[in-house]
Simulated scan of single mutants.
Amino acid sequence: MTELHQAAAAGDYDLVQEIVKRNKCNPNQKDSDWNNKTPLHWAAAKGQTEVVRILIENGARSCLRTDNGWTPAHFAAESGKLPVLRYLHSVRAPIDMVDCSGDRPIRIAEIYGHRDCVQFLEKAETECRDHRRMALLKGLPLDETDDDWEEERREVDQQKRARSQKKLCFVSTKKKDKCESP
């Protein structure tokens, strides 16, 4: 965990500001000891809206995902941090991304009983999708993809398919053996 991760998790706005202004740490550094959380994930989870703001203003990417596919919006939804969700939406962060289990932040907010977040996300998701469509039509760039995470997902999917193929071959061989027995 970097100094920036710690400062963001603690909500130490002044220290976060000092670190990012001096370029002492990469605001998009993933901490492999903590499921690939970035400082932005920590700040969102803790409801530190001003820390979220300063991180994003200094290059933190709101689309980066943890190893289970959570974005900062998932963490804010889990802990019921509506001001963080509002801010993320205001800067066009992807607040409707699906994690490894197929859950969007709105589902996480529902699970944890954060009705105010659910109500906000119902409207915000629609606006997010509309913005995405408009940007695509106009050829505007969107920062909504965590390439490293996507590559890891492809590798995991390939490994799953390979294991399934082996199981199918094994089952098929066993059935064939049984069928050929007198």
Rank of each mutant, 00 (worst) to 15 (best):
S172L: 04
I56P: 09
T145R: 02
V16L: 09
R154K: 09
S172Y: 05
R154S: 10
R61T: 08
C128F: 00
A109N: 04
L64R: 06
L4R: 01
K138M: 11
R92P: 14
D116N: 12
D67Q: 10
P39I: 07
A93I: 15
A10Y: 01
R129F: 04
K160G: 08
R163T: 07
P182M: 10
V91A: 11
K123N: 07
H131I: 01
S164Y: 13
I54E: 05
K81E: 03
L142Q: 05
L64A: 06
A43C: 01
G69P: 15
E110K: 15
D177N: 14
M134H: 15
S181N: 12
R153P: 05
Q6S: 12
E180D: 07
E144S: 06
M97D: 10
P141K: 09
L4G: 02
D177L: 14
D130G: 01
E57I: 09
D130K: 04
L88T: 13
L64H: 03
E122A: 03
N68V: 15
L85W: 03
H114L: 02
R153I: 11
T66S: 00
V98L: 13
E50T: 05
Q159A: 10
P105I: 05
L40H: 10
N28K: 06
V156T: 12
I19D: 04
K160N: 12
K166E: 11
P72Q: 12
K21W: 07
V51C: 13
R154I: 10
V52M: 13
A45G: 05
P72L: 00
N28F: 05
C100Y: 01
Q165K: 14
E57V: 09
A77V: 06
E127A: 06
V98F: 12
W149K: 08
R129Y: 02
A93F: 12
K37E: 06
Q165I: 11
R104A: 13
W34C: 08
E127Q: 11
L168R: 13
D157Q: 12
W34S: 13
F120Y: 12
N35R: 08
T71R: 07
D103A: 07
L136V: 07
